[in-house]
Design a protein around this nucleic acid. Structure first.
Lengths: 251, 251
DNA sequence: TAACGCCCACAACTTAGGTTATTTGAGCGC
DNA sequence: GCGCTCAAATAACCTAAGTTGTGGGCGTTA
C-alpha cells in the first residue's frame, strides 16, 4: 500500500468520525472503520429542507456524517409517514446494502454531509471482511431494537408518552455523537414533522407540547429543546436506554 | 468427515426444512443451511400456551420449526405487548446472536418445536463463515422491514386496516412454509392476543371483526380464518407484499 | 409597504377507540 | 348433575385524538 493511500485512508477515517463513534458504541473494534474507509466514499453535501432523495441511490451504502435527516414514505391523500430520524453516524438505509434497493426516501432538516459508498464495492468488502459484515449486522440489529421499541410506543402509549420517549431517545443518541447538552439539545423539527413522526396530527402535537410545558417538563422554542425535569420525562415515557445498545459509548 | 457425521448432518438439514425454506426465500444459497446444520442444534418441544420463556436462553440462536409462537413484553398494570408472531422458519430472537442477550419473552400458541443452537458455537460459526453471517444479516433485515411496515400501520392506519394488514401478511408468510390455503389458514389466536398484537382492546377487536364479517371480507371461527375477498382485504390494508422479501420463494 | 408563505396557537365540534359491565356458551373437573 | 374458567359477543358510556377553521407573528420577495 502506497504512502498516498495510507494518507488518504487516514483522511477518510477522520472524516468518518461520527460513524466511527457509532461503530465503537456498538462494540466493534477500530479496525472496522479503517477497512470501511478504504472503500473511499463519495462525500456529498445536501442542502437543508431537501426531500425526494432516495435513501440509498443505486443500492449504495450511505452514512450521515453531519446534520439531521429523516426517512419517510408518502401515503395516499397527501399525508406522510416519517419512519425515523437519521443522526450523524447513522446509516441512511441499512437494508439497501443486502437487498440492493431502497424503499424509503430521505429528507433533510438541516444542511447535511453524507458519505456514499459504492454499493458493489461495499458488498465486495462485506464478502471479504468478517468485521465489516459484522458491523452491518450490528447496525441492522440496533435499528431493529429501536423499531421494536417504537412499535411498543405507538401501540400502547399516549401522545405525551410518545413525545417524551422521543425526546429521551434523541438525547441518548445525540450524546453519543456529542451533540447534546446536559439540559437539552437543538431540535430542528417543526410540529408538523413531529406529527408525522409520532403518528399524530399537528394540532394534537401542539396541544401535547402545551401540556408538557405547563407541567414544567420541557421548554421548546426556536428549535431548541430544554428539558426541565429529566427524571419526570423518563418516567412518563417509561424510558430505559438499554435497548439503544449504546452502553459501550464513552460517558 | 465420517459417514455418521454426514448422515447426522443430512438428518439435521431435513429437520430444519422450514428454516431452509426461509433462507431460500431470502435468496441465500443451500450450502448456508448445511453449514448451519453442522452446528447440531438441540431440538426442543414446547407445549401449547406456554409463556415466560426467554426467547433466546443463554444467548443461544433459536429457530422455530413447527407451531405458532410470539414475542412479547409485559407492561405495567398487567397489560402486555405482543411484539410479533413467530412462524415456522423464523428465528425466535435474532438480536440475541450479536448482543448475547435477549430482552423479549417467547410465548407459544400451539405445541412448538424449536431448534436451539448453542450461542458460542453459533457465533464461532459466524466468524468462520461469510455465508452464515450473511444469513444472519438478511434475517435481521427482513425483520427490520416487517417492523418498519408495522410501525407505519400503527402510526397511520385504523383498527380495521391493521387487522386486514395482519391477515394479509400472515397469508404470505404462511404460504412460504406451505401452511396456508388459497382461501385462508388456521389462526390460533384469541381476540385478546389479537388486541395485544394490534395495539387495541379486546372489545374493539371484537367490534372490528364483526364489521369485517358484515362487509363479507372474512370469516373467522374455531381458529380458522377464511378470506372471502382477498382484493378488498388487501386494498383496505393497502398491502403490498414486497417488503417481506419473499419474492424468491417458490410460488 | 404590501402580499405571500410558513409556523405556531387555540377554539369548537366529531369520532375512533377505550372502559366497564353483563350475557351466553363451550369445555372440564368433580 | 354442579360449579368453574375461558372465549366471544354486545351494550352504555367516556376520553384521547382527529377535523376544521381562525388569527397572529415573522421572514422573504416584490
Amino acid at each position: 500500500m502506497s504512502v498516498q493511500r495510507e494518507y488518504a485512508s487516514n483522511m477518510s477515517v477522520s472524516m468518518l468520525s461520527p460513524f466511527g463513534a457509532r461503530l465503537c458504541a456498538l462494540g466493534l473494534p477500530p479496525e472496522t472503520l479503517e477497512e470501511i474507509a478504504a472503500c473511499d466514499p463519495l462525500l456529498e453535501e445536501v442542502p437543508a429542507r431537501s426531500e425526494r432523495r432516495s435513501a440509498a441511490p443505486a443500492g449504495s451504502f450511505d452514512v450521515l456524517l453531519r446534520g439531521w435527516a429523516f426517512r419517510y414514505r408518502d401515503l395516499r391523500e397527501g399525508s406522510r409517514h416519517i419512519a425515523g430520524l437519521v443522526l450523524p453516524g447513522d446509516p441512511c438505509d441499512i437494508d439497501a446494502v443486502e437487498f440492493g434497493r431502497s424503499n424509503v426516501q430521505l429528507g433533510t432538516l438541516t444542511r447535511c454531509l453524507v458519505a456514499s459508498f459504492d454499493g458493489d464495492a461495499f458488498r465486495d468488502l462485506c464478502d471479504r471482511s468478517a468485521l465489516v459484515r459484522q458491523a452491518v449486522t450490528r447496525l441492522s440489529m440496533a435499528e431493529n431494537a429501536m423499531l421494536r421499541e417504537w412499535n411498543l410506543c405507538l401501540a400502547h402509549r399516549s401522545a405525551s408518552q410518545r413525545m417524551a420517549h422521543l425526546f429521551c431517545e434523541l438525547h441518548v443518541r445525540l450524546a453519543a455523537v456529542d451533540a447534546a447538552d446536559r439540559d437539552g439539545y437543538e431540535l430542528p423539527l417543526t410540529q408538523v414533522h413531529l406529527a408525522e413522526l409520532l403518528g399524530l396530527t399537528a394540532v394534537h402535537v401542539n396541544r401535547t407540547l402545551q401540556a408538557m410545558r405547563a407541567e414544567q417538563l420541557i421548554e421548546l422554542s426556536d428549535q431548541q429543546l430544554t428539558v426541565r425535569d429529566w427524571d419526570a420525562l423518563a418516567a412518563l415515557a417509561e424510558f430505559r436506554a438499554d435497548y439503544l445498545e449504546m452502553e459501550r459509548a464513552a460517558a
